[in-house]
């Protein structure tokens, strides 16, 4: 009922506004339409220019308010190129933006209709056309040149000494796998996936799998200043590994393995100091719509020094041991209960 009242009220308000607007147009007839028309024209030209001036002020204010919320300095070496390229593109497009908008609103003010003015019949000028075809073309060509240099740099082959880490998306969390002592990820097969004790479908006949370490919570540990190559996969639908602080992003597509590599520059601790935020954390966001839990598909990255990383790695137990160990290994059995409950919960959500 209250809904109807609200709608009725809105309609009523519109009717009143319409009647007032209509009355004002009748009133303008009484005052002489020519005069009113000229006045309206002046008013509109003025308002449009005011809009432009206030707009520029608003842009400045908006920048002031939001600049502190921008990302800190690139956390990866590859992202440094992105940051400088963003700046160059911003400057070029920013100049064009202010120039063209200023010209537009200047013309609006300068060439508003008056009784004395007659328009200038000016239909074409090939020199001008040539000018503003070639200048943008040259500008675009230089942006393409900068862009492709960065693009090929980012998409180049990972160096041979890069660490390899696998990250697999599923509805709605990330699973991270490390190759273990043998530095080799074993084969996996989606038909062997079992949410209870083999969440990635590792093939136990492949001995490379036996020492692989899995973090089902989506927490990834990386070593600072050491290149890392991510092997990206998906169990169900398309996800996307988004690493805003590293300026990196790559889709996770079921049935296809994608990769990306980068070199972290700052440990999480260093980044806390850079940002002045004691809660700072590198986050992995899912950047491809993947279902109702898309917004909650959060992973984290902890960048550490080699020593910290080694200490952490030493404390990890292989996924095989967690799930296939003899019953005697009591703590291991306790650990394995964790991924089990996690996955049960996720299944229930579906």
């Amino acid at each position: 009922m209250s809904g109807f009242i609200i709608i009725a009220l809105i309609v009523l308000v519109f009717i009143i506004i319409y009647q007032i607007a209509k009355a004002s147009e009748y009133a303008s007839v009484l005052r002489g339409e020519e005069k009113v028309k000229a006045q309206t024209n002046r008013t509109m030209a003025g308002l449009l220019v005011a809009f432009f001036v206030l707009g520029v002020y608003g842009i400045w204010k908006c920048h002031e308010l939001l600049i502190d919320k921008m990302l800190p300095v690139s956390a990866s070496e590859q992202g440094v190129g992105y940051d400088s390229m963003l700046k160059v593109t911003l400057i070029i497009t920013g100049l064009v933006f202010f120039a063209t908008q200023a010209i537009l609103f200047w013309f609006v003010w300068r060439y508003q209709a008056t009784e004395k003015r007659t328009s200038f019949y000016y239909a074409h000028n090939n020199k001008l056309e040539l000018l503003w075809t070639t200048v943008p073309a040259i500008a675009m060509a230089s942006l393409v040149a900068i862009g492709l240099r960065n693009w090929f740099n980012i998409t180049s082959q990972a160096p041979a000494n890069a660490a390899v880490v696998e990250i697999v998306g599923k509805q709605f969390n990330w699973i991270v796998r490390y190759p273990g002592h043998d530095n080799e990820l074993g084969k996996r097969d989606f038909r062997k996936i079992n949410d209870a004790n083999n969440i990635l479908g590792l093939d136990w006949n492949d001995t490379h799998n036996l020492d692989d370490i899995i973090s089902p919570s989506g927490e990834m540990h990386l070593v600072v200043n050491k290149p890392v190559k991510l092997i990206i996969g998906s169990r169900d639908v398309i996800h996307d590994v988004g690493l805003p602080h590293f300026r990196m992003k790559m889709d996770a597509v079921p049935g296809i393995t994608t990769t990306m590599w980068f070199t972290p520059r700052y440990t999480t601790e260093q980044m806390k100091q850079i940002t002045g935020n004691p809660n700072f954390v590198y986050e992995i966001s899912c950047d491809q719509m993947c279902g109702k839990g898309h917004y909650s598909m959060r992973g984290t990255i902890i960048v550490q020094t080699q020593a910290e990383y080694d200490a952490w790695m030493a404390s990890q137990q292989s996924y095989y041991a967690q799930n296939n160990a003899a019953p005697a290994a009591a703590p291991a059995a306790g650990d394995s209960a964790k991924p089990k409950t996690d996955s049960v919960k996720v299944t229930a959500m579906k």
Binding site: T40, N41, M44, A45, L48, T100, I103, L104, F107, V108, Y111, Q112, A113, T114, R117, T118, S119, F120, Y122, L128, E129, W132, T133, P136, A137, M140, L143, V144, G147
Partner: peptide, 25 residues
């Protein structure tokens, strides 16, 4: 980025269209 060129041409042509016009708002 090539497609930005014809788009830019259009914008400049629109701007020149209102240049020295007798604009009725």
């Amino acid at each position: 980025l090539l497609i930005a060129v014809p788009s830019a041409v259009k914008v400049f042509n629109w701007l020149t269209t209102i240049w020295r016009g007798n604009i009725r708002f």
